[in-house]
C-alpha cells in the first residue's frame, strides 16, 4: 500500500518537474531579451536539482543528494556571473 502511494506520488512529482523544466526551456528559447534567458536558466537548474532529489527518494540512495548540492552551488555562481556580465559587459575586471 505504502509502496503504491510512494511510487505514484514520485512519478507524478517527476512529471510535474519535467513540465516545469519544459516551461523554463521555452522561456530560454522564446525570451525576448538576455535577462529573460538567464532567468529561465535559473529556473531550469532549480528544477533539475529538485528532480535529482526525487530520483534520490525513488532509489533510496543519498548519492543523488550530493549531485543536487553541487548543482545548487554552481548554479548560483553561474547566475551571478551572467548577471554581472549583463550589467558590466565582462565578468572579471
Amino acid at each position: 500500500m505504502s509502496a503504491t502511494i510512494l511510487i505514484w506520488s514520485i512519478t507524478v512529482a517527476q512529471l510535474f518537474l519535467l513540465a516545469a523544466m519544459a516551461c523554463a526551456v521555452a522561456r530560454m528559447v522564446l525570451g525576448p531579451r538576455a535577462q529573460d534567458r538567464v532567468l529561465g536558466f535559473d529556473a531550469l537548474y532549480v528544477c533539475a536539482m529538485l528532480l535529482l532529489l526525487t530520483f534520490g527518494i525513488r532509489t533510496g540512495t543519498t548519492i543523488y543528494f550530493e549531485a543536487a548540492l553541487v548543482i545548487s552551488l554552481l548554479g548560483f555562481v553561474s547566475t551571478v556571473a551572467l548577471a554581472k556580465f549583463l550589467m558590466r559587459g565582462e565578468v572579471i575586471e
Binding site: 506520488s9 507524478v12 512529482a13 510535474f16 516545469a20 523554463a24 529538485l50 527518494i57
Partner: peptide, 12 residues
C-alpha cells in the same frame, strides 16, 4: 512531494 512539485510547476 506533490506540494513541492506542484508549486514548482506553478512558478514555471
Amino acid at each position: 512531494l506533490l506540494l513541492g512539485s506542484g508549486l514548482t510547476l506553478l512558478g514555471a
